[in-house]
């Protein structure tokens, strides 16, 4: 297992490098000069020039690239062009908000989607199956910000149960959870639609397998056949689906954070982009890509846990 972790980690390093290089290049071809952006359009040429020197923008590209990379490895992401605060601090405060949102939505999606997927597969062709399929089709088709607005309208404006916007007072956990409710429900319902669908498909496939017939031939109950014999065999497709959809989830979290005004990475991304704060933007992009890479790596490792055939290799 440890060997597997190490091997996966080594595999990921070149991808990380290419990702970083892409981000770096993107930021250099972006229009506008960071120094001018920082000082405003009316700053004197000398002031801009000295700031450029201070930021290292006058040095050759490859040395800027190496500096950037070295800074990233040491956790020093530079200072924000708009606020002057260290970017690493901004990210440290925004990242937990986004991760909490993603984790709670994933939990909602799995806790509700797995049972619904099983029930629709076992009751294939019955009313509950049709209802389940209609639900997954809707969930797969609704953009997160549309669902977010709908939920906000229903549960924060028409029937004000939950707060509409904000992240909650810091240090007040129950207030923060209350503010997390609608955003995580938004993403959770969408996640649930994906999980229900893949669970139904793979359950239907697994229930056709010979070993399910063997299990039935032992005279055990149908519930045990489904839960103990079929379900574990559905986990491989479920893990790969979750890996893909956590990435969709991260994408959607940007929109949800904007709608519900949550102080997460998504808001950092948008405000950095609006203010042409390339230093922050570059770091936020790298962090997002890092999350995706980590998720994929975790999924690779989970395959081994849920599938004995991979584990023993």
């Amino acid at each position: 297992m440890l060997e597997l972790i190490i091997r996966r980690t080594l595999n990921v390093i070149p991808i990380c490098l290419v990702v970083f290089t892409i981000v770096f290049c993107l930021m250099r071809i972006a229009p506008g000069d960071p120094a001018t952006a920082m000082l405003g359009d009316y700053a004197s040429a000398e002031a801009v020039q000295s700031l450029r020197q201070e930021m290292g923008l006058d040095r050759p590209l490859w040395s800027q690239y190496l500096d950037s990379l070295r800074g990233l490895l040491h956790g020093d992401l530079g200072r924000s062009l708009s606020s002057g605060a260290p970017v690493s601090d901004q990210i440290a405060s925004a990242l937990p908000e986004t991760l909490a949102l993603a984790a709670s939505s994933l939990a909602i999606g799995l806790l509700l989607g797995v049972p619904l997927g099983i029930v629709t597969a076992v009751r294939r062709g019955r009313p509950v199956d049709h209802a389940g399929r209609l639900f997954s089709l809707s969930g797969l088709s609704i953009p997160s910000f549309v669902l977010g607005i709908l939920l906000m309208l229903l549960f924060a404006i028409d029937v004000p149960i939950f707060p509409a916007i904000g992240g909650g007072r810091s240090g007040d956990l129950s207030d923060q959870l209350l503010h997390l409710a609608l955003p995580s429900l938004t993403l959770g319902l969408i996640m649930m639609a994906y999980v229900t669908r893949v669970m139904r498909t793979s359950m239907l496939n697994v229930l056709q397998e010979d070993y399910i017939r063997t299990a039935r031939s032992k005279g055990i109950g149908e519930l045990r056949v489904v839960l103990r014999h079929a379900l574990p065999n559905c986990l491989v497709p479920l893990v790969s689906l979750c890996a893909i959809n956590v990435i969709v989830l991260i994408s959607s979290s940007v929109m949800v954070e904007i709608i519900f005004s949550r102080p997460g990475l998504g808001r950092l991304l948008i405000s950095a982009m609006r203010q042409r704060d390339y230093v922050s933007l570059q770091s936020v992009l790298v962090v997002y890509a890092g999350i995706v890479i980590l998720v994929n790596m975790t999924a690779d490792l989970l395959y081994g846990v849920v599938n004995p055939r991979i584990r023993s290799r």
């Binding site: 991808i15 990702v19 993107l26 994408s251 948008i270």
Partner: peptide, 23 residues
């Protein structure tokens, strides 16, 4: 390599980064 690396970005986030450059 390039395709895999671009896929490491969630699609909307890559879109935002590209629009930041293109206008």
């Amino acid at each position: 390599r390039v395709a895999d690396s671009l896929m490491a970005f969630p699609s909307l986030i890559l879109g935002v980064a590209i629009m930041a450059i293109l206008g």
